[in-house]
Design a protein around this nucleic acid. Structure first.
Lengths: 334, 334
DNA sequence: TAAGCCTGTGAAAGCGGTTTCTTAGGGCGT
DNA sequence: ACGCCCTAAGAAACCGCTTTCACAGGCTTA
């Protein structure tokens, strides 16, 4: 239990017979130290089982080696594997660069929340945002010079680095596919319309209609929130107003499953009578029956891209927004 | 971009007309400061938009306010909502106590990996482990006096705090239920048998057999790894050796779904011919058709319990291992 | 051979808080 | 009134590492 006091530079320096400055140089791969001295230091480090105190190091250097991953939502969203997966991608890239990931899941809301305080307290070298509902905090932090990456497209145009999935394209492809399969009346169940991703998916859907010269009938556009229950509820409402609907594009797999559940409960067969396409190509899409056709986004790649963008910024390199392609994965439901 | 230099104690002290020591006292709720002076300090803080530098604070006080959540596996496990959910529970409790969560997902393996280095570098006040495959690092850290919590039962008996789900009881209940429904030949598809949780679930299953005086036929115990694909593969193998199996207890929902998929593909109806029960009661259990009966574990509560145990340790309070109950949720599959 | 340059190294000044040690008063007892 | 104890608040040491600055000594150049 005794919090054994760990050795410090002072001890290393003494055992190696050099100054603390030299110890620091060796431990930070400063090439200018004579190999012999460096060797002595390394031996002392080895012998004493020395581990650098990162906190002290951070204070002196101004670099903490921590990057915050901020998910602007309450913790329940973590039930959706999306965030876990994307975070894992981020984490991998950061680790390769000697950085650690600090996870924060909390509604960002105001400029005064605990997230805001934390990010401004100098404890992180940068922050990566997900599911951002507002840009105010981001803009403030940006002004303070904190390296930032946004996953998803920012609401306002600014010069913040961001990476996103091609939401528009994915939605376009899904909708187009439904129509090419003969669907005459395609509905959309959107995600949380407060996010840019949901808006872009809706745009992709509308674009298809636009090209056909039609306008989707009122009621075909159902505003959802990415949850299973909402998927069910909206589908029931949809069937009430448009019993002749023959295609549904749900903006995530969970809602798509909600739709399928309701359809099957009513004896409406999928895909014979109504075709359904989801978004995410999650595990659920693969395990469901019929297996769900879905727009795949490479979630790990998304996280990795976000991580890389952060690294680039920290190195002062140039960077461009990254938009990752999507792919339609056809299974039984459409 | 200009990394605007933030105010320090020195500035606050000057504007408030007090010493830095007093500033520190006020900002750390030391009661012994005269209300008038305290007010002056607070006003200065407010006026200057001061945010405490946590790194400096950590160095001086020896407390970083960070708790590591270590998941001993590669990042792919994050596709399983379990970890995200449990982490969110941990995070909530910690935040309420002014602590932040540092997430590390990496095979812990040796004592020399980056996780080990990080935990020994003094950057965290404590660590919470998940899916631990080995106890060596834990024991080492324990010796160094780092507060630790293990989620899941430790392999070796030691005095490390842990919280766990009643795996044994859950498995027992599931198996018992299958038999009470008339199943004569119940198979189990286990999880990664390297974890104690998987072993305990297997034990619960075996206990039911033991009580009936029988021994499960060879081949009824299928060693899995929690993945959908493995669930499918093992079920096929199972059907080959035991075509008359009439009950399957899968140690997670994903594998249960794999089993159901294979069964249905062969025209074997669930639950009429084979009853299936999963474990976790995840989203998949609710969305599948037939909906999957499953053993629910309160994952968020698990995380919260782990967080609370950590807090208790940090406060030097006593603590007991926590075992959370499970519940059988009956749906269509059994 | 003297002046000018590197180069490797040590001394020391931070980084921005926390905490111990000290001291100046104020209240109280006799 | 005098001495003692207690309290509020400042001075300064310190946490452990980084980084600037200065310096000695060896080399080059004229």
């Amino acid at each position: 239990m005794a919090p054994k006091t760990r050795p410090t530079y002072s001890v290393i320096a003494k055992t190696a017979g050099v100054s603390e400055a030299t110890v620091s140089r060796v431990l930070n791969q400063d090439e200018s130290v004579h190999p012999d001295r460096a060797k002595r230091v390394l031996e002392a480090v080895e012998k004493l089982g020395y581990k650098k105190n990162r906190v002290a190091s951070a204070l002196a250097s101004g670099r903490t080696g921590l990057i915050a991953v901020v998910i602007d939502d309450d913790l329940s969203v973590f039930a959706d594997p999306f965030y876990g997966t994307v975070t894992s991608g981020v984490s991998r890239v950061l680790m390769e660069n000697g950085l650690q990931t600090v996870l924060m899941v909390s509604p960002v809301g105001s400029l005064e929340g605990s997230v805001a305080h934390y990010l401004e307290s100098g404890e992180v070298d940068g922050a990566i945002f997900f599911a951002l509902h507002s840009d105010v905090l981001v803009n403030k932090l940006k002004k303070q010079g904190l390296p930032l990456v946004i996953t998803g497209t920012p609401h306002s145009t600014s010069d913040v680095a961001f990476v996103d999935t091609d939401n528009f394209g994915g939605a376009y492809t899904a909708t187009k596919h439904l129509i090419s399969q003969g669907c005459k009346k395609v509905a959309i169940i959107t995600g949380d319309i407060g996010t840019t991703a949901a808006k872009q998916r809706l745009d992709g859907y509308l674009q298809v209609y636009r090209e056909t010269g039609h306008v989707p009938a009122k009621g075909l556009i159902c505003e959802g929130d990415y949850s299973f229950e909402t998927g069910k509820a909206l589908t029931e409402k949809l069937l009430a107003t448009h019993p002749d609907v023959d295609g549904i594009f749900a903006c995530n797999d969970l809602m798509a499953m909600g739709a399928i559940t309701v359809l099957q409960d009513r004896g409406i067969s999928v895909p014979e009578q109504v075709r359904v396409i989801g978004f995410d190509d999650s595990m659920i899409a693969q395990t469901s029956r019929p297996a769900l056709s879905s727009i795949r986004q490479d979630v790990v790649a998304l996280g990795e891209a976000a991580g890389s963008l952060m690294i680039a910024q920290l190195n002062g390199e140039d960077f461009e927004p990254v938009i990752l392609p999507t792919e339609l994965v056809l299974r039984g439901s459409a």
